[in-house]
Write a protein that binds this DNA or RNA. Structure first.
Length: 203
DNA sequence: CTAAAGATGTCCT
DNA sequence: GGACATCTTTAGA
């Protein structure tokens, strides 16, 4: 028996130095990590299986490409914070900020394999099918109850939203392709995912 | 001020 | 493979 203080604890959040690095590297290394969302006494968890890197200067697909604005301000702030934006009039997408303060960068969390709070997620997503609970950036935010209220949230505090080391993760081969849903910057292979994992948005 | 596109998902054929 | 929902942000007049 483990001590009760550790029993269902989703472990320790990744620290600031993890995020304060090259965006593409962070995107790759976030695969296999555990995304954790706490809502009161409820805990939703899932293993990250797909990510995309977005930089600033030199990356025309990035919101930060043309410099800071009200929307992308968080991307220019300190690393290890949530950048949540609203798109297509109805969807939210979750990113984690990277790079040192003042240097824009973020990693889009595109898909996760749910491991805890699955019943809650099924309810939120209005489906019983495991594979489509969080296999896309907007499906993921719906399943994990992430919206504009979490924009700017510090991910190193281990409170409402954070990421920790993933345990017992099947170590699949990491594949990289061009990013999804963009019209520019297609030459950059900055989408990463576990090849063969059925919770990825697209193989 | 006006307009168009958007780091998408769902339903339809 | 394609239409469409829906609204914020940004670019341009």
């Amino acid at each position: 028996m483990r001590p009760s203080s550790q029993a269902s604890s989703p472990t320790v959040p990744l620290n600031r130095p993890f995020y304060e690095r090259d965006t593409v590297r962070v995107a790759r290394e976030l695969l296999g990590k555990m995304l954790v969302r706490r809502i009161g006494h409820t805990v939703l968890q899932g293993v990250i299986v797909e990510t995309e890197a977005y930089r600033g200067e030199g990356d025309p697909a990035s919101h930060a490409y043309r410099g800071p604005t009200k929307r992308n301000a968080v991307m220019f702030g300190p690393p290890g914070h949530a950048y949540v934006y609203f798109t297509y009039g109805m969807h939210y997408c979750l990113n984690v900020t990277t790079e040192p303060l003042g240097n824009p960068g973020a990693v889009l969390i595109r898909a996760a394999e749910p491991t805890s709070g699955i019943e809650q997620m099924k309810k939120r997503r209005r489906t019983d099918q495991m594979r489509i609970l969080a296999n896309g950036p907007a499906k993921l935010t719906q399943a994990f109850v992430v919206d504009r209220n979490l924009n700017g949230h510090d991910l190193t505090l281990g409170k409402k939203l954070f990421i920790s080391e993933g345990a017992n993760v099947e170590r699949l081969e990491i594949a990289s392709t061009c990013r999804v849903g963009i019209r520019v910057g297609l030459e950059k292979p900055w989408r990463f995912f576990f090849r063969g994992n059925s919770f990825v948005s697209k193989q």
